[in-house]
Design a protein around this nucleic acid. Sequence first.
DNA 1: TTTAGCACTCAAAGAAGGAGAGTGCTAACA
DNA 2: TGTTAGCACTCTCCTTCTTTGAGTGCTAAA
Lengths: 342, 342
Amino acid sequence: MKMDERKQRVLLATILDYIATADPVGSRTIARKYNLGVSPATVRNEMSDLEEMGYLEQPHTSAGRIPSQLGYRYYVDFLMKKEPIEGEIRDIIYQTLLNRIRETDELISLTSKLLSQLTNYTAFILAPFCGENTLRHIKLLPIEEGKAVVIIVLDSGHVEHRIVEVPGYLNEGDYAAISAILNGHLQGLTLEQWHPGIIQAVYRDLDRQRETLKQIIEVIEQSLDYEHEQKVFLKGTLNILDQPEFKQIERVKALFELFEEEETIKNLLHSDQENGIVIKIGTENRHESMKGCSLVTATYHRQGKVIGNIGLLGPTRMEYSRAVSIVELVTYALTDMLEKMR
Amino acid sequence: MKMDERKQRVLLATILDYIATADPVGSRTIARKYNLGVSPATVRNEMSDLEEMGYLEQPHTSAGRIPSQLGYRYYVDFLMKKEPIEGEIRDIIYQTLLNRIRETDELISLTSKLLSQLTNYTAFILAPFCGENTLRHIKLLPIEEGKAVVIIVLDSGHVEHRIVEVPGYLNEGDYAAISAILNGHLQGLTLEQWHPGIIQAVYRDLDRQRETLKQIIEVIEQSLDYEHEQKVFLKGTLNILDQPEFKQIERVKALFELFEEEETIKNLLHSDQENGIVIKIGTENRHESMKGCSLVTATYHRQGKVIGNIGLLGPTRMEYSRAVSIVELVTYALTDMLEKMR
DNA sequence: TTTAGCACTCAAAGAAGGAGAGTGCTAACA
DNA sequence: TGTTAGCACTCTCCTTCTTTGAGTGCTAAA
């Protein structure tokens, strides 16, 4: 069977109507609302064909039809037109984000919240993927008898602190010395560039502080290893409760449990490293609990490199065109902001 | 009408059975299962009295009876026996918490997770209420052209860092000088002890760095003000989805929305500053969405002072005796751990 | 190829009729 | 006077049956 233009129009009408109403769509509705200039009977024949081709399905014999996963796929790939986004929304995005330009984490958090609010779906963002992290600066600072705080500044601008235990006998000079030696040996290195020789050298220079050093090195390694520790920002989870397809508690619970597994979310978001928008419909997401859900993902960049992912999750019946436009817009805005933060 | 001993036994049996089964309890069930040595008819009379007294209610004429809010209150105040907790659970608690004794936040987070897992309810903990926070140490550390990180160490052991913008012309010496001056003036002070004079003095000493200083002071103030910024740790929210009373999405949504309002949760948890366990049943929580929920709260301490709150939220039909025992146990354990961390 | 007409299907909503659990009342009993 | 057996009554829940209406699929005519 061939997909001709009228079939496309019927398919499009069915999908649009179903997206809008969440009710199975009948031939009459289509013939009437989406003036195709043919009678319901004709539409019926087309729909029957579309069903045979796998683009539509019937919940039961005498109901209307709903789009199948394949149907959505066809729509997204060939029929969908990008929804033009009003300037107003563009303004909201930029205004909101411009307010908090200082800390990356806050910016990301705000962005994901914004995305979920604009769409009424659930938004994910993976925090910057820092790729090759180099160490810019280390400082060991005493805070009380037996405790010190290691402050680590990475090239990406990320700052981290961690408390470590230290022997009580260290004095001001010792702290300065340790900091100096660590910086001397390690500054400017990525984790890949560490090798036993360097660590040996550090240990040689700081023999008395073996225990302390071991802790510090561990902390630094963890920080540099941050790329494997991309943070997930998740906002608007409650929005899915508004969708009629999530009326049974079990489905909600399954999905929420999935939300709590950071690893799973990371996998969902960067399964493809492609640039631009990627849409995954239903089981394309390879996760039982995502059966009825679609995910619109995008990557965002800094200096031409992918550093994070944005995801927007809704029911398979989601408003793809609007979702895509907004994800696109938000991605641009975020990339912009990050560039400005350098 | 007077509450005699047999009425108490009938009330107790009704409540225990309803807690266990979530079904309205009939007179036969009680006469049979909780051998009171009287016939169902007698129990029936007693139940009728208890209903008149407000401790029980009927969903409809010919159903069994369920405890009213007042009934639970009476149970909790007069009838409930503490459930003895097996040593095994005690062991689990201490073992789990001993693993992560370094960072307060992690300890708290772990504790709340543990609490929710042990009980299958939802756990809240308010992070240490640091009361009179004094500043132990401030350090300004350059990280790149035009940016520095302020590190603030409080007397409570809490460390915080924040990025601030600084003029580009500062050199190493300047940073050291700024740190020294700030420490000299501000070390050992609580926010209450700050006064315009001190700030003036600092500004006088660091006239050239007015802008930078303003930012730093602001950061420090925020940190000292941390008491108003108690962090909420919330774990096991999905547990309530297992309760039969939360089968309607609307109730779930209302409750989850409440969970997202940190302020509300704080209010719920420290409405009473009493020591020991406080149980709030249903509408005693003064929140529409909490209608069907009860909250077991406790305070935890450091050096005799209340520094935080623990809460456990379940349906009004919750297993109070077990909940109370576990909250108590966890509270002791947490207090212990915090003492050890000093 | 398109369309009108019509019989057919099926879910959802309502009506009717037990079944069962439980109550409330009364009268008898200890 | 408190306790109990007996019994009619109530109300939800479950099942079954019917009706309704939206929608299909087929056929025959345009």
